[in-house]
């Protein structure tokens, strides 16, 4: 056996080196816990920092962000910290009295109260005891929901609601999980990508990619909100959903913020590769380069 046949001994090291190459290069200030950020007293300390003898020091490993006088550090990978009004995607984990517990990738469980959902049959119907008994027909363990954060409790628990037709149970697609830091707050979190794919960017890092459904169709048929059955999906729609989902995975692997333009650029760049290759190191870094270049121009 010649040495040329031998498998590569260090693919892990190489892969790691390649990734670092791809991620550094911007003019961002990276800090680690205990690293002084500024001693300028004009700055206010924000999340992820603490003050010792007048010096603002980082409490996280991440990127320094300055908004006017406020200095914050954002970690690349942290649990999601919710804010009122955020759009999130969550998974029901258990049922309790008059409420569901929801996994939101946050410090504490999310809570969806029975009174915070639209009951079938009438938007403003009062909830009755029979609704309480039928809770599992609305949402059962494992179901995915898209919802808005209604309020925050002191202990970090998050109350969410689905009292709008755009919120509710998710169907016809697949979930992609990425670090929450890669999703930024924006005007809308519901996007229709031109290739016939809908994307819901949950701020908690859960992203729902599904086939495009006309919003008017949902309004016309509100009874379907709690359906567990998928609509018929064509092979083309299925491949497009898979491609977009893998594009998002590729972008997240290269630490690019996920928003509609980035997804569209990545989709365009991805068309010359087979879908299943998109998540490999070489292809994802190539796509990331193209997306970065397009975003800057």
């Amino acid at each position: 056996m010649s040495t040329a046949d031998l498998p590569d001994l260090a693919p892990f090291e190489q892969a790691a080196a390649k990734r670092t190459e791809a991620t550094t290069g911007g003019e961002t200030q990276l800090v680690t816990p205990g690293e002084p950020i500024t001693s300028n007293t004009a700055f206010m300390r924000g999340h992820g920092t603490y003050v010792e003898e007048g010096v603002v020091i980082s409490a996280l490993a991440g990127v320094v962000e300055r908004i006017n006088k406020l200095v914050t550090v954002r970690a690349l990978k942290a649990r999601y910290a919710g804010e009122i009004g955020d759009v999130v995607v969550g998974r029901i984990t258990s049922l309790a009295e008059k409420r569901w517990r929801v996994d939101l990738n946050s410090r504490q469980n999310g809570v969806l109260a029975l009174s915070s959902i639209n009951l079938p049959g009438g938007v403003q119907r009062r909830k009755s005891e029979s609704d309480e008994l039928r809770m599992r027909t609305f949402f059962a363990e494992g179901d995915l929901v898209v919802a808005e954060i209604q309020s925050l409790y002191g202990d970090g628990a998050i109350a969410i609601h689905t009292r709008s037709l755009k919120y509710g149970k998710l169907r016809n697609g697949t979930l992609v999980t990425i670090p929450p830091a890669l999703v930024q707050r924006s005007r809308t979190h519901f996007y229709a990508i031109p290739c016939g794919v809908d994307v819901i960017l949950g701020l908690n890092g859960y992203i729902w990619v599904s086939k495009h459904v006309d919003p008017q169709a949902i309004e016309a048929n509100p009874e379907e909100v709690y359906s567990n059955v998928n609509d018929p999906i064509t092979a083309e729609e299925r491949t497009n959903v898979a491609r977009v989902a893998n594009c998002i995975r590729a972008l997240s692997r290269q630490f690019i913020h996920i928003h509609d333009t980035a997804i569209v650029y990545a989709y365009e760049a991805s068309l010359r590769f087979p879908i299943s290759d998109l998540v490999t190191d070489s292809v994802s870094s190539e796509i990331a380069m193209e997306v970065r270049a397009k975003l800057q121009s």
Partner: peptide, 25 residues
Amino acid sequence: TGLISPAEINYIREGFAVGIRADGR
């Protein structure tokens, strides 16, 4: 946590029938 929704199961299983898996393989 091993939890999965009926719609996801249906989506993945239908994908097997047509030969297109959820990750495009």
